[in-house]
Design a protein around this nucleic acid. Structure first.
Lengths: 224, 224
DNA sequence: ACAAAAGTGTTTCCAGTACACCCATGA
DNA sequence: TCATGGGTGTACTGGAAACACTTTTGT
């Protein structure tokens, strides 16, 4: 059968995650530095090759765990990258995902069996990644922009409390726009995703800001 | 390297297309009957295994051509199906796509090297497909519903002229809702996707209906 | 003239936008 | 008391929804 046909041999699947955070108004993505060839010592998105004895979701989570130590992140499908020459070793089709994490809660490890370093990098300053990961990143960043207006994916960025101005700055950083304070607040409250905690946050010398928290997760709010 | 690791051996990629049409108010999908094992003589979605020397887009088009004879259809990514047991032969990850075609222009062939029959089947009556194709179909049907309100994908269903009532019936069939005639027409004209041909269609004994045609293709109208 | 189905216009309502004012705090 | 940034209210606008009337045809 097919298995013996050389046309079908030596193929594999990459599962690649773009893990984003927003750090002081800067959108960053988690990169790891590769220990092995191909692309030894190059920075890359988190991910690797799927095993043939694991579901793709399991492989995705395993790769994230193995290369970063992060264990509890929601990832959603973004795209498929299938140019025949995208890997120099053998034919690999990449399935890409995106996730969002609070930088303070992201206890990633800097070195693992296959990686020599890890860091959140400003997406605007990312260059020279392994494979076609720059392309994958661009595609995931687009998807992130679409997703934050249709889902409560940003809840992961604020596991505890947050103020409206904080949340707004995050939206503005990702979407690269500026929004009206009053309309932003009204819009967000009308979505029924967040609730007032009754607490306040005190900053430098300004009026204390109300603290909100995200309600239980409702992914992908439908337009209909 | 990885290539010699048994964990990475014997994997492949399926490219699977759900090709839809709307026939007299009934949403149908193109199925083919398999000649070979596994799932010999079972109906299945159009698709097959990607070669290791072709881009995924090329493989997708090749599979559609080989199994149906259809050569000029736009397909867009829908989902990835990666359960480890989804294929009984070897580990295959499926990438699924959707397309839409006018049933009158769809000159598909009934038999090919690998298929013994082909037919458009009412999506509500599809049962007992090969592999996990029922699951893939369900997912693609969902995607189709979302897509017809955000793109002019239905233009492929009406390569020539059409009347507003016809187009509305098509929307209603896919979305499984009923819409208001007047609002539907206004909405569609406001989208600037269609233009008046100046011609009219005469039916039984009713007022002639204006004929419209789709303007040049603009896929995926953005919400922003 | 009548039924059937097509075309057109009007009102209402809500969500998004733009904008002005008040409030609490630390210096 | 002042500057800074946070909180609240209101008027405007445009698109979606609800709805009624007219037009054309074959019988």
């Amino acid at each position: 059968m097919e298995v013996n046909n050389p046309l079908y041999k030596n193929q594999g699947i990459h599962v690649i995650s773009s893990i984003f955070t927003v750090d002081h108004g800067v959108v960053k993505v988690l990169l790891i530095k590769r220990k092995n060839n191909p692309f030894k010592d190059k920075w890359a998105l988190v991910g690797g090759a799927l095993y043939n004895n694991e579901d793709i979701d399991s492989g995705l989570k395993r790769e994230v765990r193995e290369k970063t130590g992060i264990d509890n992140i929601d990832l959603s499908l973004v795209n498929v990258h299938g140019r025949v020459d995208r890997s120099p070793v053998m034919r690999m089709v990449a399935v890409s995902y995106l996730g969002v994490i609070d930088i303070n809660k992201a206890n990633f490890v800097r070195e693992t069996l296959k990686t020599s370093d890890a860091a959140f990098v400003d997406v605007k300053k990312v260059t020279d990644l392994a494979y076609d990961h720059e392309e994958i990143l661009a595609s995931s960043l687009d998807a992130l922009k679409k997703k934050i207006v249709n889902s409560n994916i940003l809840a992961s960025l604020f596991p505890n409390c947050f103020t409206m101005p904080e949340l707004q700055k995050t939206y503005e950083a990702i979407l690269e726009v500026t929004l009206d304070r009053r309309n932003f607040r009204r819009k967000l409250l009308s979505l029924d995703l967040v609730e007032d905690t009754g607490e306040f946050a005190n900053f430098d010398g300004k009026k204390p800001a109300k603290l909100y928290r995200f309600k239980d997760k409702i992914d992908n709010i439908d337009v209909f």
